[in-house]
């Protein structure tokens, strides 16, 4: 009797541990759903799971005083964030969109995140700010091209720009980027030379 109760007492912690393990595995699998409430990070665009087929992404870029939209072929990724990351990378390095203007040299995508508030956080290397060379309209068009490229490829309530992982007040001294960009970038603008 004493032997069986000892075995029973030993089995209880084993069952509890097994329950915690199974629960953890199930919970962590739930994070793979798109637009989940937890934060999904893409450390580098193009490192996600490739499905094997080709896909197209939309890139919005500056040409003169206008924004133009183009679609380019890319690998098809399982996660929409990685698709959007590929589009942002294309905008930054201009491999296929060669006639883009006003993009700072050497800027790289460091990360693209979904926040709990459905705001997409885009993290770009410090070259974006360091090598920016433009006036007020140039800064606006650069931010707008980033915003439009992201929102053309994934659903997002807003976009927040980080430079080298940090919040910045401004990119070029004209526009304020300590807030999400939508409110500023969805206003009607007028450039009378276009």
């Amino acid at each position: 009797m004493r032997k069986s109760s000892t075995i029973f007492l030993l089995l209880i912690p084993i069952f509890v541990m097994a329950g915690i393990g199974i629960g953890y595995v199930l919970m962590s699998k739930g994070d793979d759903f798109p637009l989940s409430q937890s934060v999904v990070a893409l450390k580098e665009a193009g490192q996600g799971k490739v499905i094997g087929e080709e896909s197209t992404v939309t890139v919005v870029y500056r040409k003169g005083m206008e924004l133009k939209t183009t679609t380019i072929k890319t690998k098809k990724y399982f996660e929409p964030l990685k698709q959007a990351g590929a589009a942002v990378s294309e905008l930054l390095n201009g491999e296929h969109v060669t006639d883009r203007e006003g993009m700072p040299e050497g800027a790289k995508l460091l990360g693209l995140y979904y926040g709990v508030d459905r705001i997409v956080y885009v993290d770009i290397s410090s070259e974006l700010k360091r090598n920016f060379s433009g006036d007020a309209a140039g800064e606006f068009l650069l931010l707008k091209s980033l915003y439009d490229t992201i929102t053309s490829n994934i659903e997002a309530d807003d976009v927040f720009l980080l430079v080298n992982g940090k919040e910045e007040e401004t990119l070029g001294g004209h526009c304020y980027i300590k807030y999400p960009l939508k409110k500023m970038l969805t206003q009607e603008v007028k450039f009378n030379e276009t």
Partner: peptide, 27 residues
Amino acid sequence: VDVYHREMPLPLLSVIAAPAVLIEIPN
């Protein structure tokens, strides 16, 4: 020299309670 009129969101001007403009000179 051309003179362009532009309108866009500029936070510095938006908070000013007076006639406010931003002037860019040629480069």
